[in-house]
Design a binder for these strands. Structure first.
Lengths: 144, 144
DNA sequence: CTTACAAATGCAACAATGTTGCAAATATAC
DNA sequence: GTATATTTGCAACATTGTTGCATTTGTAAG
């Protein structure tokens, strides 16, 4: 709560109800969310332009980061350890389609072609999450 | 040329000028292309619905695969070694924004959380390509 | 090569989404 | 509390995703 106030202050953004609500939702979420998911979880029906602009502003200040999935789906997440590492790793469940953040992934010794200079790594691992692995669920593979 | 005919036949798709042209462009390209880039390179101004449907059909048969970048940008590429590996690695240049396909990347010993089962890996490495590294160019970092 | 059927295309229409200007409402600093 | 800078809601429009349908084209068979 107070945490959110600090986050906004650190980014020099006004503390408005919509922004607080958005960050609250994203901080509470175990998985990265789409713009529509965020909109649906908001306590008030804010205008889509407002949400759009706030997402854009959050990305600009680095408070959030976006992960693009196949099909053009974009999910947002609070960038907690953004500056510590340039590796962003996520796990995308093929059954429930949730997107989890993976920490502690190292990709240092990747052999790139001659003359290529790497700065960041975005990794998306696809499979089945703990709730949807064949052992735990019976019909999880229906989705894709 | 004849190669394209075989690709289409293998996917049980009719050999139409638009499809041949699209595949020609994608096979010739060193980098993955967006739908708009493909459209601009076509020799004839095909309807966008046609291109849209053909891309979708190509993805369905697996002839092409899509790579999603930040900002929702989606790029398409001929899937050459699609069945050999479940690792798709690409290099996205921050300067010229080209997307190169990286081969020979191994991500086997990735330590996932308990209960998570990985099937595919999509890696996007961002940085500067050989044409845009500081050594080779003077003002390449303007983009981004 | 023609015919007959299946498939693809162009076009129009509409839905969904991205994006902006601007006036009204709200937040921040004094 | 007041003044100023931001943010919001709304409307408008651009762009893109998507589909139905009539027309055209491709394919397979004779």
């Amino acid at each position: 709560m107070d945490n959110i106030k600090q986050l906004l202050a650190a980014s020099k953004m006004a503390k408005t109800p919509c922004r607080v609500d958005m960050l609250h939702i994203l901080l509470d979420s175990e998985t990265a969310l789409t713009e529509i998911e965020i909109k649906h979880k908001l306590s008030y029906d804010y205008d889509r332009a407002t949400i759009f602009r706030n997402l854009r502003a959050f990305l600009k200040t680095g408070l959030l980061h976006a992960i693009a999935l196949e099909g053009g789906e974009v999910r947002y997440q609070v960038s907690e350890s953004r500056l510590q590492s340039h590796v962003h790793a996520h796990f995308h469940c093929k059954a429930c389609s949730n997107l989890y953040c993976l920490n502690a992934v190292s990709l240092d010794k990747l052999n790139l072609p001659e003359g290529f200079e790497a700065e960041e790594f975005d990794l998306v691992v696809k499979g089945f999450c703990e709730k949807c692995t064949p052992e735990h669920a019976k019909h999880p593979r229906s989705a894709n």
